[in-house]
Amino acid sequence: MPAVKQISHRLSTESKFLPNLERLVLKDMMALEELPSLGQLPSLKVLRIERMPAVKKVGYGFFGSRDQGKCLPSLEKLKFRDMPELEEWSWADGRRLFPCLRILEIVECLRLKRLPPLPPVETLRLDKVGLTEVAGLREGIHGGDSCITASLSSMEISQCLNLRNLEEGLLSHSFPNIGDIAILECAELVLLPEKEFKELTSLKKLSIRSCPKLLSMTRDGDIDIPLPPSIEELVLFDCGNMRLPVHRVSSSNVAASPETTSISEILEMCLTALRWLEFKDCKNLQSLPIELHAFPSLCLLTIIGCPEIQALPEKGLPTEE
């Protein structure tokens, strides 16, 4: 409907408006300037809003009357895609927004700088979003202050070109059930949270690709190894200098100054569950673990475009029977 500029809010405030509707797609409405009020649809489970070039904000009207406590009470999947002018996402404290949301995807919203505190989703995907930071999953969106992060199991952050660090907001909290993290093509990303990464005890798969300013996964300081020992699949593509500062303690129990340790030493010390290991275009990677016997479960080792590697491991390479 290329000429429609407005959908009446009165439609969705009627108590009998589409009471059984479970799936709604709003798409290619090129002239629509404001999203309709959908917050009181009682049975809606899937909502996709795509290619709305004139919409500039997700305003209070989208959620329905401020007097209503719950908003989209049955919604499980929410997706915004290709919203080039979307700049603002408003929310009100005390509202129960998306209490059943499991999957949140925001794609190609390059002007959107900030998200509201997120509900406890299971899957989060942010691709080509203009975020400077990623909001935390907080109960504040339900009216409290405590964190409720246990449900998050998979996260992908891709081509968020304004994102500089993940120490604040989302990754400043605990994620006991997260199993898969992908951080892809975030050109300005320079810092990952050291303490929080080490505590991701269920993390099985970590992919970091084309983050050339990601010079280290830790700061000089008090965390020895930032990667949790649960990791089974580690993929590193074009990730800076590949050397990690590690805080060592001398035999006299006096803290020494941080030393620089190669990624290979980090792998040997803590990632004994590795099954899949890939390096690609890591220009400053100089060495691999000396003995691959330290990784009894390793099934795949891939090295592409790493010209500074000086030697392969001495022992542990597979041989043909």
Rank of each mutant, 00 (worst) to 15 (best):
V4Q: 06
S8N: 08
E14M: 13
F17H: 13
N20C: 12
R23F: 05
V25C: 02
L35K: 06
G39N: 01
R48N: 07
R48A: 08
I49F: 03
R66T: 07
R66A: 07
K70G: 01
K70Y: 03
P73V: 13
K77C: 10
K79C: 10
E85Y: 01
E88S: 14
F98P: 05
L101T: 08
L104I: 06
P116F: 11
P117E: 06
L118V: 08
P120N: 12
V121P: 03
L126E: 00
D127M: 02
L131G: 06
E133F: 09
G140D: 01
G144E: 04
D145R: 13
M155R: 00
L161H: 05
L163N: 03
E168F: 00
G169P: 01
F175N: 02
A182C: 08
L184F: 01
C186L: 08
C186E: 03
E199A: 07
T218A: 13
S230W: 10
E232T: 11
E232N: 08
E233D: 04
G240I: 09
M242I: 10
S251T: 10
S257M: 14
P258Q: 10
T260M: 15
E265A: 14
L267I: 12
L267N: 03
M269W: 11
L277D: 03
E278M: 15
D281H: 15
L285T: 13
P289K: 12
H293Y: 15
C299R: 15
T302S: 14
E308W: 09
E308F: 03
Q310R: 15
A311H: 09
L312T: 10
E314L: 14
